[in-house]
Design a binder for these strands. Structure first.
Lengths: 348, 348
DNA sequence: CTGAAAGCGCTTACAG
DNA sequence: CTGAAAGCGCTTACAG
């Protein structure tokens, strides 16, 4: 157990702020919660006192008094605990900073929008959705219709007003091709991601553009389908490697598939990267598990989740609906992590 | 935002309980917090009212009034986000049930006990430690000396009073051998875990016992060292498979190494499970990623974390120190998950 | 647009 | 061993 005063510096309260600003506590509360309209001069006074005093509201008191507590739900369908783990780390930190409650919910991947609607307003104040659920049309439509505060992670859409964050899959894929070309590769195979993920299309587009810029042939038998699974990567890898004129480098749209390519190469007696280079995407745990370790694109997942929580909190606080939000696409920085699986092609 | 009454059934308060039990609110509070001694007749009355009314304390009020909030820290050194993710899920749920605060902290694996000591009482009320940190002597000694409420996950020691939870590595390993023997295998190889983890020794002991019971030779060239990494599993697999009289089944002390064995088999042109069966341990994500999927032992990690939170809360609440706790080893149920990587040996 | 009052559910002293 | 009082920091009506 720990008394508050052991850890918190004698905390400044709403009343302190009120005194400092020369208004009533009620007014401070109103400013803080954007409730009814406060004269803007008053508002500014209060805000500056808040800043001056470095005030931050006591969540316990808040929820005791008003029963108002912001509940943010992180919804996921895919049980990749690695992906989820990173997301959780970031979300947890942000949630405790802003005093929200975090609810983590697993739902069947084929959940009907209707069963979601039920929980919506009754249970949560905002939603963070990760792929592939965020790519499901019915779910997006529901959330949009309801004007429910939602942040989509890693799944961009054409809907201009939807709040979406992630990395630029298109540009990241171009970067991978640039990297491979820079190494000296001129026959580069690509294994696509699952067709139901929008990011798959963007990664493919990036590859094609990168190849085009390098003046290299794109498409044809160098692009094969995949489903984000190890096994599909293995089969696709076999297919590419057994072609009459096999690629010297293979870029797979995620790490699981890239690991599958490693297995395919091994099965054919090929050494990576000596005989063929392999690049993945995501920097998931398997990237540093398999040998050789995978060169791959790293997404800042925990930062992503943190930003999502903050943004969602703002949306809810300002009573914004998705439709009101203007700039709502946020691209975070990714990085190309160079490890052992890619190297220059061997001299013929 | 959501009003409390929208979600909570008109909640029963401490006052309701007091009325029901015919005592003052203060007495109820005392019973609930095991503070000063309450006459046991009174105590029972209160407790039964609590049960009858299905009362659960409002954490917000609790922390507002007393500033008493229990902070539990989950400490980890190894960045396996998959393992951590599962642990987090369980911990989060429990924490919200009991109204504790969860702090998740990553520390360098080689952290000095001294730098830990600093944070100890100032910041946390209890600690959950996962391997391999829980196997570090210096850290255990520090925690023990300080009498700091701690639950060790997955790392059992000889210290009788330390509170430790996990699965029975020894028995689980025996079960794997039984399973393999039942399938018809009589030459079974074993790849050991990292020597710094105590669980490694227990898994080895289980294997030896299982083999002994089956009347099979143990040890010798059938037991090779490993370090829990994919690469060490691959090398160990190669070593086993290249022996003059190779095993027909290989049990690796974790899934990463088992996946490495798969790679080794592939490199030698062997098919799993046709030519050799492979069994892992942990049921980590890689088990269902690689192909064939791994037969393995599943640990109930999220349940484990949940139990740890609850236990820790009790330890803290009752002001118990480790040394006072009596039965402090908890074994949770594991399960042997049968997938594609193990089958009967082929008829010669 | 702003304020004075009351109360959220619990716990802290302080008395018996 | 048990209770009556006051208050934690905020927000909800309710008034101006």
């Amino acid at each position: 157990m720990s008394k508050k005063n052991e850890t918190n510096k004698a905390s400044v309260t709403l009343i302190d702020v009120a005194k400092h600003a020369g208004v009533s506590p009620m007014t401070v509360s109103r400013v803080l919660n954007n409730l009814s309209i406060v004269k803007s001069a008053t508002r500014e006074k209060v805000l500056s006192s808040v800043e001056r005093l470095n005030y931050s509201p006591n969540q316990a008191a808040r929820s005791l008094a008003g029963g108002r507590s912001t509940r943010i739900c992180l919804l996921y369908g895919n049980p990749s605990s690695a992906y989820l783990g990173e997301l959780l780390m970031g979300a947890l930190e942000a949630v405790s900073t802003y005093g929200y409650q975090l609810v983590v919910n697993r739902v069947p991947e084929d959940i009907s929008p209707e069963s979601l609607r039920k929980d919506l307003h009754r249970t949560w104040d905002g939603l963070i959705i990760s792929p592939p659920m965020g790519d499901v049309k019915g779910i997006r439509r529901l959330l949009n219709e309801e004007g429910f505060p939602t942040v989509y992670l890693g799944c961009f859409s054409e809907n201009k007003s939807a709040c979406e964050m992630g990395i630029d899959d298109y540009q990241a894929s171009i970067d991978v091709i640039d990297f491979l070309v820079g190494l000296g590769h001129s026959r580069i195979g690509f294994i696509q991601g699952h067709p139901s993920h929008r990011s798959s299309a963007q990664r493919l587009a990036g590859v094609e553009e990168g190849l085009r810029r390098a003046g290299l042939p794109a498409g044809g038998d160098l692009v094969v389908p995949g489903f984000f699974t190890y096994r599909s990567g293995m089969e696709a890898g076999l297919q590419l490697l057994k072609a009459r004129n096999p690629p010297t480098a293979i870029f797979a749209a995620n790490d699981d598939m890239a690991a599958g390519v490693l297995a395919a190469a091994s099965e054919m007696g090929l050494k990576v990267p000596r005989d063929v280079s392999v690049v993945g995407f995501d920097d998931s745990p398997i990237a540093t598990t398999v040998w050789p370790n995978l060169t791959t694109i790293r997404q800042p997942l925990s930062e992503l989740a943190g930003r999502a929580v903050k943004t969602l909190g703002d949306m809810i606080g300002e009573g914004k609906r998705q439709a009101d939000t203007s700039e709502s696409k946020t691209y975070l920085e990714y990085s190309l992590i160079k490890r052992e699986s890619a190297a220059a092609p061997k001299a013929d």
